[in-house]
Amino acid sequence: MAVPEQHESRRPSTGAVADVVLGLFMVAVFGWAFLEAADWSFKAALFPRIVTGLGFTVALLQVVQSLLRLARGRRAAADPTPATSPAGPIGPVPGAAPAEAVPQAAGTTSEDDVNEDDVEYVFQTAGARRWTEAVAWVTAFFVLLYVAGLFVTAPLFSFLYLRFAGRRTWVFCAIYAVVVGVVLYAAFELALGIPVPPGLFLD
């Protein structure tokens, strides 16, 4: 387990906190699922009990491990003269300190955390505002899809999204919306004849 520790120790502390929270969540899920299996017959419950029991134990281990790491990180941060590293700051500092950049066994090179094209990077650095915006658009899309069906949602959402999130011209958005609508209708309704979300009113 030396490898992940090495890696974790130089992550921002939000990562360690998240590991604890997610770990606890998994503990709760497995615990609930284990109890849920109590009423079932032996055959039906055997596999669930094994799976959830194992899951519960491993998740608990993970929580303990992340807590330990968190505590160690705090201690290191509180202590201004860390004994282990002569080459500068250690602990919850983003970015790799030179001393930590020792080649890791089966792990990864240090650059993987700072590559700008990584999904991880985008998710970590996008601000709260961007997150709110993106999630709101996605929510709107699926609610609209549920309520109004595909053939309304596709052009309408394309139009609104490109106009307000993409900042395109009105004309561009209108053309895009019409093309999307027509192509979808032609492909799914006329050519393939495959059911698509109909919406609440078109049943």
Binding site: M1, T52, A106
Partner: peptide, 12 residues
Amino acid sequence: KHLLKGFIMAAF
């Protein structure tokens, strides 16, 4: 690199 997390996800 996260064996423990991998096991949890597999159990999940």
